[in-house]
Amino acid sequence: MPADATITTAQAGAPAGPARRGYWSSVAERLRHDPVTVFFLCVILLAAVAALLAPVLAPHDPYETSMLKRLKPVGFEEHPLGTDELGRDMLSRLLYGGRVSIMMGVLPVLLAVAIGGTLGVLAGFLGGLVNTAIMRVMDVFYAFPSVLLAVAISGTLGGGIASGLVALTLVFIPSLCRVAETATSQIRSVDFVEAARASGAPTHSIIRAHVIGNVLPPIFIYASSLVSVSILLSAGLSFLGLGVSPPVADWGAMLSSLRQAVYVQPLVCALPGIAIFVMSLSFNLVSDGLRHAMDVKA
């Protein structure tokens, strides 16, 4: 019986591999073997949890000033990380500031992924005029340095958290759009997408089933590296007075207002900077680790 013959032929050489292992579980498996990435992932999670729980964890009211206890060093009385130029508790302000700073790092990137990624996938998959229209608009944004663009937009909108959010999102859209477009136009010409078209599938179904799953990893990796940029940019905006308005805490704003005291209490003044540095470093390293873990061997 010929049919039986074919079955046995294929079976004989079948590797006795794992019966079921999804893509994401294999990524997790590879991450487990990468202690550096796991460590910095924990740092990010810890910082996020600490910021979320700031009202519980903070030893003092972050807005409570004291003219007597201005610019006290680390370990002063009940202020483990000292006080700032208005005598406010640094630890509490750092915790509360983390809420704004981490949100300003993550949220604009997520929004930009949603908007830029969608535009990029559409441009890449549909090609032709749609592509030209979308990508030329993006090129206009590209023409400005990102810092300048963020400052200009934020300044025009009048400062504050919301305008900073809009500014940063707009800054990240073009580059995410470009990454998505490149990844999509590569996928578009691969045989399995052709095969899907040959089976009569409509465009939206092909994008959903075959394109998104394959362009998401590169977008995701790139986006995770943007988080650190976003934290720095939003710190920069706050430093320039375009971010949060006092007395709300934000690492960038804290750095800005403490800069005059750098010769009095250098360590205390450096604390917000250290926080920014640690967060952006963590996001960068995790992004690198993800890049390795998500690299599927064909």
Binding site: R20, Y23, V190, D191, F192, A201, H210, A298
Partner: peptide, 27 residues
């Protein structure tokens, strides 16, 4: 229907093969 030359690139790497085969009828 068509079978392509490159057996690797003509399958979606993120899809279990059962879903790849079932995709056409689903559509």
């Amino acid at each position: 229907q068509m079978v392509f030359q490159d057996s690797s690139s003509s399958l979606n790497p993120r899809m279990p093969i059962e879903d790849s085969v079932a995709y056409g009828p689903r559509v």
